[in-house]
Design a protein around this nucleic acid. Structure first.
Lengths: 146, 146
DNA sequence: GAAGTTGTCTTGAGTTATTCAAAACAACTG
DNA sequence: CAGTTGTTTTGAATAACTCAAGACAACTTC
């Protein structure tokens, strides 16, 4: 994705096009599911004078505009991704923290409807899977074979 | 639930029975889905010399022993509850933060199996619903009627 | 029932992710 | 090109939580 395409994306969302914003979008295209600090590290080379606070500001603005989705897995800092609006879920590795997208389970509206919401109006259902990624499975197998 | 029943619960889990631990269990029986600070406040009157750090320690020990479940909804601090081992879910009010238990959706193993786990071994599926509680619905209706 | 051992609590400080505020600055408008 | 509005920089502050060391209490053994 080119910078000018990203610029258009920003403009369409009613946001001003700035270097930090384009850089953050570029970084999240390359490395999705990154936290603010990782994004800051990825952005710093191309935007030398920037700061972590600026990254937080950009992330908040882009999330509010619907350009980013913020996910907050238990026990880790907030992660951001560009894939929005499709209600997909995530699986997190309990060993290394790796995150992977999981498409919505087999076409289940039932999955997203509690049996008894106790009078609550349900707006969204959030599903997170926890498990072990292939790499860590190998590492664990290796270890137990020692 | 009496203190001695709680004491037995602790002993059965292989934990020493102490005043702060009994007090934390009592507090969580009365007010489930509480955070460390709220529990601290509820415990303080009956265990005058205690500290927030002690509460954190107790919560960690009881959670590790399987006596408590820790839930960490996005954007809020960690909450604890005594209901464990039944894989139930939660619905959180986006207005006031109220949390309510939701029994597992209509008997769905499918709900807990991602369509493509990408090589991950899935251990647990976590489901959180976000919506508006009855009280806040009323408040919002009222407000729009003004 | 008393002494010892082990684990728990208290006290105090430190860490990390995140947020707030004010001034300097840059992007879009006309 | 100048003005306005919104963004970024700089610096500091906050909240939730963790770590560490000594004081202390619960269960065990005698």
């Amino acid at each position: 994705m080119t910078d000018s395409a990203l610029a258009d994306t920003l403009r369409e969302a009613g946001l001003k096009v700035t270097e930090p914003r384009v850089a953050v979008l570029t970084a999240l295209t390359d490395i999705p599911h990154s936290d603010a600090d990782t994004i800051f590290g990825a952005v710093l080379p191309s935007v030398p004078g920037t700061s972590l606070q600026a990254v937080y500001g950009v992330l908040a603005a882009l999330t509010a505009a619907g350009l980013l989705r913020k996910i907050e897995p238990a026990g880790s800092s907030a992660l951001y991704e560009r894939r929005t609006g499709d209600n997909h879920h995530h699986i997190v590795c309990t060993e290394c923290g790796a995150v992977r997208d999981v498409d919505c389970v087999v076409g289940h509206a039932p999955c997203l409807t509690p049996s008894d919401a106790g009078g609550f109006t349900v707006h969204i259902a959030e599903v997170n899977f926890w498990g072990v990624c292939p790499d860590c499975q190998n590492a664990l197998t290796q270890k137990s074979a020692d």
